[in-house]
Amino acid sequence: MNKPRHVLGISGGKDSAALAIYLNDKYPTLNFEYYFCDTGKELDETYQLIENLESYLGKKILKLENDELKGSKESPFDFYFKSFRGYLPSPQARWCTAMMKIKPFEKFVSGKPTISYVGIRGDEEREGYISREANIQSIFPFRRNIWSNDVLTEFFTPGNQSKVQEFLTTYHRGNDLDRFIAILNEPIDFERNNKTETEKVLKRKLHGSLDLGIPEFNRTVFDFLKTTEYPLATEVDFELLDNEDILVREDIFRILRESGIGVPKYYEKVEFEVDGQKGEYARSRSGCFFCFFQQKIEWIWLYEQHPNLYKEAMEYENEEENFTWTPNESLAELIQPARIKQIKLGHIQRSSKEESKKSPYLLDILEGTERDGCNTCFL
């Protein structure tokens, strides 16, 4: 097996940008390849962020696209929108993700062993995009646990227990070794229908193992991986094994500001007033300006801050076929004065319930919208 490539996708969002800066500064010997899947429907701030990152990293961020787009004068989104005969993407039919993100990425990798670095933070409970291709392995540097669920499943599978125990004695002694063996011995059934219970046991095993030492756990997993076909199997060592950093949202904003890259303007809060009540709104994500994962308050933000883009988003809708960006409501209906008022008042009410968290970022109170979005697009 060839040595793996190290790749990092830049979505235009804060997390992937901060991850690129963080890894570049902390692990300068790793030869990262950066890429960006352009839909042609990003906000201007996204493209500016890409330019700023290229200057900071001293490397070109490769723009990926599929072969069928070559020679086309249309944006990638418009090209595929026509291919799907005007059928808008949705949470149930994410052709945008499949055609403009995953397909060009897997073509870029081209079957070669690849380590893909993902910017999911230490304060998030989500896994992110895991490729089904055996040659692609995901790593999560911001989290306490850097390994993906597929790796953990292999590591904690009962049939691999004896193999895992061979590596434990290198990093554990005495009581810690006994505790780790007890963790391995806890029954877990990956074949059972009760997925919720399996995930609960897996999480318990993971955190119990990490409590005995993050570097020790990472090195045990790494040694185990050398007996598999994972891309890291060919590596003599891996620099992130001893990293105990856990980065959360506040760290992401700090990295962007201290580096001089800056936070994209669409994350900045804008004040509004309705019925004498004051509120604030912003955009919670990168990605297409008409992303169907947006909350209603974010659509209102787009309408009031970028009316031309909102109008463009409206032109894609076909109300006769019920092809609208939001279920059962067109963008024309969404911006009726009474509806705008209702959405804003509802947002103010939800926001006030979250004030006790004392977060300086509106992103914390947009109903967890980041976690609901497409992980491939919004890192």
Score class of each variant (00 low, 15 high):
residue 143 R to F: 09
residue 103 K to D: 08
residue 163 K to Y: 04
residue 124 E to N: 10
residue 130 I to Q: 05
residue 95 W to K: 09
residue 114 T to Q: 05
residue 170 T to L: 14
residue 113 P to K: 15
residue 150 D to P: 06
residue 111 G to S: 10
residue 158 P to F: 08
residue 97 T to V: 11
residue 172 H to Y: 15
residue 103 K to A: 13
residue 82 K to Y: 07
residue 146 I to Q: 09
residue 163 K to C: 11
residue 123 D to N: 13
residue 119 G to P: 09
residue 101 K to H: 06
residue 111 G to R: 00
residue 138 S to C: 07
residue 108 F to M: 06
residue 153 T to V: 14
residue 130 I to D: 01
residue 91 P to E: 03
residue 121 R to V: 15
residue 137 Q to S: 00
residue 128 G to K: 04
residue 115 I to A: 02
residue 117 Y to N: 00
residue 107 K to P: 00
residue 106 E to H: 02
residue 115 I to F: 08
residue 144 R to G: 03
residue 166 E to C: 05
residue 165 Q to C: 13
residue 102 I to T: 12
residue 172 H to M: 10
residue 119 G to A: 13
residue 134 A to N: 14
residue 134 A to M: 11
residue 110 S to I: 00
residue 87 Y to Q: 13
residue 171 Y to W: 12
residue 134 A to H: 11
residue 127 E to S: 07
residue 138 S to D: 03
residue 169 T to M: 09
residue 171 Y to V: 06
residue 99 M to K: 13
residue 166 E to P: 00
residue 149 N to R: 15
residue 122 G to H: 08
residue 101 K to C: 03
residue 109 V to E: 01
residue 167 F to N: 09
residue 132 R to G: 13
residue 140 F to S: 08
residue 138 S to K: 07
residue 93 A to R: 14
residue 119 G to R: 10
residue 162 S to N: 12
residue 172 H to K: 10
residue 149 N to K: 15
residue 135 N to V: 14
residue 147 W to G: 06
residue 94 R to N: 09
residue 120 I to K: 00
residue 169 T to N: 04
residue 113 P to M: 12
residue 82 K to F: 04
residue 141 P to Y: 04
residue 103 K to T: 08
residue 115 I to R: 10
residue 113 P to Y: 02
residue 169 T to I: 15
residue 101 K to Q: 03
residue 151 V to Q: 01
residue 156 F to H: 06
residue 126 R to S: 07
residue 155 F to I: 05
residue 128 G to H: 02
residue 123 D to W: 08
residue 106 E to R: 05
residue 125 E to L: 15
residue 97 T to I: 05
residue 86 G to P: 00
residue 148 S to T: 13
